[in-house]
Amino acid sequence: MFQRLPDIRGDALSFTIDGKAAQARAGETVASALLLAGVETCRTTPVSGAPRAPYCLMGVCFECLVTIDGRGNQQGCLVTVQDGMRVETQIGRGKRELGR
């Protein structure tokens, strides 16, 4: 788990993770917001279906790929979370696919 330090302040905002309501602070990235909401595994690999979590948080590893507002395979660590944003994990082979 990850937690904000107790004296951290910031504007709260709401977004959804796989349709469920979640909270974040303004300025956080989608990947950070997922980790802080307790969602660690953000996708499974297309090769073996193994679970993956954000790894580098700096745009290099592409492990934090998620679907954001309907657009698939976005690097969660490079997108700032917005109020009302719809984030979907990419768990389950073939989930993020054709027609999106």
Partner: peptide
Amino acid sequence: VMTAGAAQILLKTAGAT
């Protein structure tokens, strides 16, 4: 498992550990 740099980025950007 993540990079130590990633942990540091969480601290810098979200004040989280």
